[in-house]
C-alpha cells in the first residue's frame, strides 16, 4: 500500500494555530460564537482549538459535540447500522454563530447530516465549517469549508488516515492508496 504524508505532528500544530488565528480574526472574543465538533475526530480537534484560543486570546469558547449517525442519508445503504456516539450541546445555539469542526471534508454528506442534527438545537444566525483536510473534486453536495487546514487533490479510491494522539495515534495525517487487486 502506497502512502503519502500530508501533515506531521509539527505541521499539524502549526496548522491548528493558523486556523485559530483565523477564527479569532473573524469572531473576536467568541461572545456570540460556538464550536460544534463532529464525532468522532472533529471532537478532538474542537477540544484542541478551544485550548489554543484560550492560550492565544485568554477567552473561553464553548464547545459541543454532534453525532450525525441518526441524520445520515445513507442509513441502510451501507450494510450495517452505525453505532452512535454522544451528542452534547449544553447551550442554546439560537441566534449564535456556529463553527462546525471536522477532520476531513470528502463528499460533504457528513456535513449535511451535521447541519440537520444541529438544527434540532435551534436556528443559528450563521454556520461556518472548519476542516483540517479538504479533499478537492470529491464533493457530492454543494458544501465548502470556510477554514481549511490543507487542500489535497485526491482520487475517490484513496482515503485520508487521521492518527490523532487522542486516539493513540502520533498526530500524523496520511493519504493512502487502496491498490486494486
Amino acid at each position: 500500500m502506497q502512502k503519502r504524508l500530508l501533515l506531521d505532528s509539527q505541521l499539524l500544530q502549526i496548522t491548528i494555530q493558523r486556523l485559530c488565528q483565523h477564527l479569532i480574526e473573524n469572531h473576536n472574543d467568541f461572545s456570540s460564537a460556538l464550536i460544534l465538533g463532529l464525532q468522532p475526530r472533529g471532537v478532538f480537534l474542537a477540544n484542541r482549538i478551544q485550548k489554543v484560543i484560550q492560550e492565544l486570546e485568554g477567552c473561553h469558547v464553548e464547545i459541543g459535540y454532534l453525532d450525525t449517525t441518526f441524520h445520515r442519508d445513507d442509513f441502510r445503504r451501507r450494510g450495517i447500522p452505525k453505532k452512535a456516539s454522544e451528542t452534547r450541546v449544553p447551550f442554546l445555539i439560537e441566534g449564535k454563530d456556529v463553527i462546525l469542526v471536522d477532520d476531513v471534508l470528502f463528499t460533504g454528506r457528513s456535513v449535511r447530516a451535521a447541519m440537520d442534527a444541529m438544527i434540532s438545537f435551534g436556528r443559528p444566525k450563521k454556520v461556518e465549517l472548519l476542516v483540517l483536510i479538504d479533499r478537492l473534486h470529491t464533493r457530492q453536495l454543494p458544501i465548502e469549508a470556510n477554514y481549511v487546514g490543507k487542500q489535497v487533490n485526491t482520487l475517490a479510491s484513496q482515503y485520508v488516515e487521521v492518527g490523532l494522539k487522542e486516539q493513540n495515534g502520533d498526530d500524523s495525517i496520511w493519504l493512502m492508496n487502496i491498490e486494486a487487486e
Binding site: D67, T69, F70, H71, R72, F75, K83, A84, S85, E86, T87, D116, A117, I119, S120, F121, G122
Partner: peptide, 23 residues
C-alpha cells in the same frame, strides 16, 4: 447491551427541544 447503548443515545434525543431524528 447494544440495545442499551443505542437507547442511551435515543434517550438523549427525546430530551431535546426537537425530539425527532430522520433515520
Amino acid at each position: 447491551e447494544l440495545i442499551f447503548e443505542t437507547a442511551d443515545n435515543f434517550k438523549d434525543v427525546i430530551n431535546r427541544p426537537i425530539k425527532k431524528v430522520p433515520s
